[in-house]
């Protein structure tokens, strides 16, 4: 069974881009357009890895990660932060919120798959 990746990003372009890259690599992809939708998806479904954007309406990436980490059924899911900001402050905020790793946009598909493998085997 292929692994399921939940992608959370408010940009449709980015969601589609992730979808293409991830499906090409053999993953099953779930999508959400912000943190709230992401939490809703996780109410009914499980993901092996979560990839999330930071800047999103309603509930941003930091908040989303914190909420996922509080949920006993998802607290062990690796979360990769996907963001154009490669600055240290964002990374460290994401990390203290509970992010497992990060991917710097624009990403190379190979780097993307690499990062996923590094957090989920």
């Amino acid at each position: 069974m292929s692994k399921t990746i939940l992608t959370v990003d408010d940009s449709r372009t980015m969601r589609e881009m992730l979808l293409l890259a991830l499906e090409d690599a053999g993953y099953h992809v779930l999508q959400a357009e912000d943190g709230i939708k992401g939490l809703e998806v996780l109410q009914d479904k499980r993901a092996d890895v979560i990839i999330t954007d930071i800047n999103m309406p309603r509930l941003d990436g930091f908040g989303f990660i914190e909420h996922v980490r509080r949920d006993t059924s998802h607290r062990a899911v690796p979360i990769l932060v996907l963001t154009t900001e490669s600055d240290a402050e964002k990374k460290s905020r994401a990390r203290s919120a509970g992010a497992t790793g990060w991917i710097v946009k624009p990403f190379h598909p190979v780097k993307l798959v690499d990062a996923i493998r590094r957090v989920s085997g």
């Binding site: 408010d10 372009t13 980015m14």
Partner: peptide
């Protein structure tokens, strides 16, 4: 404040996609 956030996100999104 949500208006300013939305405005920021709009430009940010365009930049992200354009980068790709």
């Amino acid at each position: 404040p949500e208006i300013v956030n939305a405005v920021f996100r709009a430009v940010h999104s365009i930049k992200g996609g354009a980068g790709a």
